[in-house]
Each structure stands twice: as structure tokens, then as C-alpha cells.
């Protein structure tokens, strides 16, 4: 087990190539936690997220999440990953969404939770969409449904927990409301009223996001080689 952990952490060190530096800090921490919990010790992955929510409606496509003009930023490059985050949700029409997801001149969002209606993340397959939201500091999306590729990209990258619910949350909640999303108990709580809403279980997607994406998960499970040989 010890050598396993060593291999894994070695594999997680940022590489020097211009395009393969990335968000390794948080991921490596989460992954090593995952491995330790597998061996019966250490802290578990996060169980809940508390903070302000940002509310959007149906069919928010990936061009609104990250317009095409910003796709020249390469998310596997660390500084460009951060910059991508500063543009998250910038394509939402102002008249519908006067409160911006990222404040003027800010790099990060103050909304760790995004609430949405049906078919969130439809349109282009650009992985930049979940990545920019994660880079901005969003942790979880709670939507009625997702477009297939966006859901898959959330899980593959480990950037966001893509939770689903049958509740019309966008009617009950407003941007700025304080919420707590418990991804163990599958409950969203509106903090001011204490009102709770059931979420659908994330199922097999959860441990993959916990691990920080499909590669970390596969490596931790022994499905692929533990360490990339530099």
C-alpha cells in the first residue's frame, strides 16, 4: 500500500510541459485521501457544500457557459485554467441574468452551488464548460436534467458534482440564497427557511468525482497503470 501511494503521488506531480500543467493541488489531495480511505484510514471526501446559489433556468448551453471566443484558452495549462474560470457563465444574457456569476474584475465566483432547470450544458461538447465552472470555484450543480456530454465531462474531469432533482428549484430559490447541498444524504437545504429538497443519488458517478476525475479514479482502483512514467 505504501509504495502504491508513493507511485500515485509521484504521478500527480505537475509536469513541466506547457500544456500539461494543471489543477493538481486540490486533486492530488483528494486522491490521496481516497486511497487512504480505501486502506481504512484518513478523512473521507467532502459530504456537503454550503454557500450561495446561482439560479438559471432551462437549456443553458455550453456557449452561454463559456462562449467560443474564450476557447483558445487551453485548460490543461494552469494559468489558462485560472483565466478560463474568470469567464464562467459570461455568455448568459444580461437582461435575464443581471447578477453575474463572476463579479466585475473577479477571478472566482461567490456561488459554489448552481441551480438549473432541464438540459443544463446542452450544445457544444466543449469540456471547457464544466472546467471553467470548477476553475471559478463552483462545486456542485443541481439541475432537473443534464445534456449527456456535459454530465460526462463533469464526471470525467471531476470538476463538479452534477446532482439531479425532480424539484423545480429555480422557482423556490433565488440567486444569492444560502443553501447546503448534502451529497451523502442527497438533500438540498435552503438555509434561511430550513426547507429541504430531495436530490437523486449520484450513484457510481460520485466516487469518480470524489477521486478528482476518471484517471485518478481508475488509477486508485488499479484499473490503469498507477504512475505515468515521465
Amino acid at each position: 500500500m505504501t509504495s502504491y501511494s508513493l507511485h500515485t503521488s509521484a504521478a500527480l506531480q505537475p509536469r513541466q510541459h506547457a500544456f500539461c500543467q494543471s489543477r493538481r493541488r486540490s486533486v492530488s489531495r483528494r486522491t490521496s485521501l481516497r486511497i487512504q480511505s480505501g486502506s481504512g484510514s484518513g478523512a473521507p471526501p467532502p459530504k456537503s457544500f454550503k454557500g450561495k446559489c446561482y439560479v438559471v433556468k432551462h437549456n443553458i448551453d455550453t456557449d452561454q457557459i463559456i462562449p467560443a471566443e474564450y476557447l483558445t484558452l487551453v485548460p490543461s495549462k494552469k494559468d489558462e485554467y485560472e483565466k478560463l474560470g474568470s469567464y464562467a457563465m459570461i455568455g448568459l444574457p444580461l437582461e435575464l441574468y443581471p447578477t453575474r456569476f463572476i463579479g466585475e474584475g473577479e477571478m472566482k465566483t461567490e456561488y459554489p452551488v448552481v441551480i438549473a432547470g432541464d438540459n443544463f450544458g446542452c450544445g457544444s461538447s466543449r469540456e471547457h464548460a464544466p472546467v471553467c465552472m470548477g476553475a471559478a470555484g463552483a462545486k456542485v450543480v443541481v439541475a432537473n436534467s443534464y445534456a449527456r456530454i456535459f454530465f460526462r465531462n463533469c464526471v470525467a474531469t471531476g470538476e463538479l458534482y452534477p446532482c439531479e432533482t425532480d424539484e423545480q428549484l429555480y422557482d423556490g430559490l433565488s440567486t444569492g440564497d444560502e443553501v447546503e447541498v448534502d451529497i451523502e444524504k442527497d438533500i438540498l437545504t435552503q438555509v434561511s427557511t430550513g426547507k429541504t429538497y430531495p436530490l437523486k443519488p449520484l450513484g457510481e458517478a460520485k466516487p469518480v468525482v470524489d477521486a478528482g476525475g476518471i484517471f485518478n479514479y481508475a488509477r486508485a482502483q488499479g484499473m490503469i497503470k498507477q504512475a505515468a512514467t515521465a
Partner: peptide, 19 residues
């Protein structure tokens, strides 16, 4: 050209520079 660079970036990060 939009998704190729990050695809290869991820490939190299995960499989190694010599892969």
C-alpha cells in the same frame, strides 16, 4: 485545434511524456 491541445495535454499528464 480547439480541443486537440488540451486532449494531448491530458494524455501527456496522465500517460507520461514518454508514452
Amino acid at each position: 485545434d480547439v480541443c486537440g491541445p488540451p486532449t494531448f495535454g491530458i494524455f501527456q499528464r496522465e500517460f507520461g511524456m514518454n508514452a
